[in-house]
Design a protein around this nucleic acid. Structure first.
Lengths: 165, 165
DNA sequence: CTTGTAGTGATATAACATAACATTTTTACG
DNA sequence: CGTAAAAATGTTATGTTATATCACTACAAG
């Protein structure tokens, strides 16, 4: 089996996770330099906290870690950093969990779909999120202008299925 | 133009809304009787509050109305009623808004998709919510067991588009 | 009529999020 | 450089959404 598994193909498979973290940070560094954005200490650390976890983390989980490191202790600190990272596509928000995950396909702007484990909060991201023809047709017919689509499938990941048997 | 517009075809079109309310309540009455469920005063009124509004209402909005009518004044009252109605498919939860809407196609169990106006919170429901082949394939391949899928498209409804020009 | 279950009342608190304003850091530019 | 404008952060307070827990009531089934 190959060792250098590619994060962008990652589902719930085992993989070399340190690579995800370093690759994700690098992409962000480059992107920010290119676009004259400031990936400050708090923002960069917030991203790395999410990258280190393949599960969705709540804003207050992130905040707790930032606090431990003296990088700000009040909610707005975490929410601002999360906001910046969201805006620039480095992380995504999981609506069903009110939580946040690092993007698995950083760099490209995309409208992702997610598989979310209701037990362990692990999240797999699919870049290809197109809605059904039916919904788009209904929107067109009724004159509704779609701006953003949320697609989140909740269920059990392979390990939790095993654990629950 | 026909007067007796069918609620199940409703998008953002004008329609005879009183019919939605009475029809929705009737379906719930019959369903509960058939399944030996108790559509109590609080539950029935909660449903009618949502039926009366074509926009999504927060739990605390619902609670405020219940309170006015002396039907319970504390959060758990509203959340329990909403929970019952959700379980039995009479209403749906809009994740992006942390809010609730009456089902537009009551009776049939279904996995709906929504068009949500970010301005006025109006919601149109589509019964047909199938995810993309890609997401399902990824789930199958990785051994993820999908239990529920959320599909919510956010944007502007026709009236808000006009209003914002 | 009594007993178990479902439903409700009530209090408290958890979890998630933002408004508002003061202060510091960075950048741009004369 | 120096300084003004802009961006980011610090801090306090509060708003919003949701649930745990325990006491009490209604009601249907035996």
């Amino acid at each position: 089996m190959r060792k250098r598994q590619n994060c962008s193909l990652l589902g719930f498979a085992q993989h070399d996770h340190k690579r995800c973290v370093s690759a994700g940070l690098k992409v962000a560094d480059v992107y920010c330099q290119k676009h004259k954005l400031r990936l400050t200490t708090v923002r960069r650390r917030t991203l790395s906290i999410l990258l280190e976890s393949h599960t969705a983390l709540g804003a207050y989980d992130v905040l707790a870690r930032l606090r431990e490191e003296g990088l700000g202790s009040e909610p707005p600190v975490a929410y601002r950093a999360l906001g910046f990272l969201l805006e620039n596509g480095f992380i995504h928000r999981i609506e069903r969990l009110n939580a946040y995950v690092a993007c698995s396909h950083p760099g490209a702007l995309h409208n992702p779909a997610f598989l979310i484990c209701s037990d362990c909060r692990a999240v797999a991201e699919s870049t290809v999120a197109t809605t059904t023809g039916t919904l788009n047709r209904q929107a067109r017919e009724s004159g509704f202008q779609i701006e953003h689509t949320t697609i989140e499938a909740e269920g059990q990941c392979p390990s939790c299925q095993q654990a629950n048997q």
